[in-house]
């Protein structure tokens, strides 16, 4: 038998990192064989859809608020057409003199008739129907309640049955419902993140249990908690990356389908919900957040479990 091999002090006595493919091989695992990439893919897909919905609703609310801010409508309700026309002109004078009013437009009767056509019909059917006159008013300031009250008082003298309403008041319930939907979507995202972390926690604990002997050996050979945690991190990183990309593709496809369905409605309000460039960046960050949460959860689970050993 030869003398023992001279390997010198090959072993660095410090805590050099044990990482990479060789380290990962310590844990027997067939990638994509386990459920973790698929679980993460589903989580990411649902989160992408929920995030897109939340961002879209947020944009819709912002656009609607922006368009309606500082606008009001005067309704002149008078059955006698001649008297109604006189009152409209008098209201125009009042509006023209008020310093809070930036401008106004008397909505042509033809436009009003067109708006009412689906309900009242057209032509002769509508001829005898007293239709109120409408005046769109643009205020200099948004939500100028004081000016609206002043104008309303002034109108009372010249057109007792005229009324002025801020347009934002009409849509307040709609905007409130949209905001509630947005909050629900954000809550859904938070729950998905929590469920995703819980799934990774369970998977990491399961993997720890299944590899207890290997981990104990690595420990006894001088492997540190950090080194062992890194092996699990790498494993979950690969699973999460595969799942994240897959989930993003599925989520964006679902979102595009929904987007095309809503676009077909040709509603001005829905058009305001289009996603902006910054929204796309946020959506693309979803899988990265998922990977970060998965890796962090796996690390914390492994470290917390290892701390119970010597």
């Amino acid at each position: 038998m030869k003398r023992p091999p001279t390997i010198g002090r090959a072993v660095d006595r410090g805590l050099a990192p044990f990482r990479g493919r060789r380290a990962a091989r310590l844990l027997p695992q067939t990638r994509l064989g386990g459920p973790m990439p698929w679980v993460i893919a589903i989580m990411v897909a649902l989160t992408v859809v929920a995030a897109s919905g939340a961002l879209s609703l947020s944009n819709m609310v912002s656009t609607a608020r922006g368009e309606l801010a500082g606008t009001a409508t005067v309704q002149v309700v008078e059955p006698d057409p001649e008297l109604r026309q006189e009152q409209v002109e008098a209201v125009g004078d009042v509006l023209g003199r008020d310093p809070a009013v930036a401008g106004f437009r008397i909505v042509p009767q033809e436009d009003i008739a067109e708006l009412l056509e689906p309900w009242l019909g057209s032509g002769e059917e509508i001829e005898g129907v007293p239709i109120p006159a409408l005046i769109d008013v643009e205020m200099r300031k948004a939500d100028d309640g004081e000016a609206l009250a002043r104008i309303e008082n002034a109108l009372r003298e010249i057109a007792p049955r005229a009324r002025i309403d801020a347009q934002s008041v009409w849509l307040a319930p709609v905007l409130s419902a949209l905001s509630a939907l947005k909050i629900t979507a954000l809550a859904l995202i938070a729950m998905l993140a929590f469920v995703g972390a819980a799934a990774v926690w369970l998977a990491a604990r399961n993997a720890l249990g299944g590899n207890r002997d290997t981990i104990e050996i690595v420990h006894l050979l001088g492997g540190s908690d950090d080194q062992i945690a890194r092996i699990f991190q790498r494993s979950i990183l690969l699973d999460a990356a595969v799942g994240g990309v897959l989930g993003l593709v599925i989520g964006v496809a679902a979102m595009s389908f929904l987007g095309s369905q809503f676009a077909a409605l040709q509603s001005g309000m829905v058009a305001g919900g289009s996603l902006l460039a910054v929204d796309w960046v946020l959506i693309l960050l979803v899988p990265l957040f998922a990977i970060a949460i998965a890796v962090y959860t796996a690390r914390m689970t492994v470290l917390s479990s290892l701390r119970k050993t010597l």
């Binding site: 072993v11 050099a16 044990f18 060789r22 380290a23 002997d213 050996i217 050979l221």
Partner: peptide
Amino acid sequence: RLVDHLSAFDNIALPLRVSG
């Protein structure tokens, strides 16, 4: 206490790998 799924070579190399 050999690691079942590692070869003889990898088992022997383990302490060196752990040490970086």
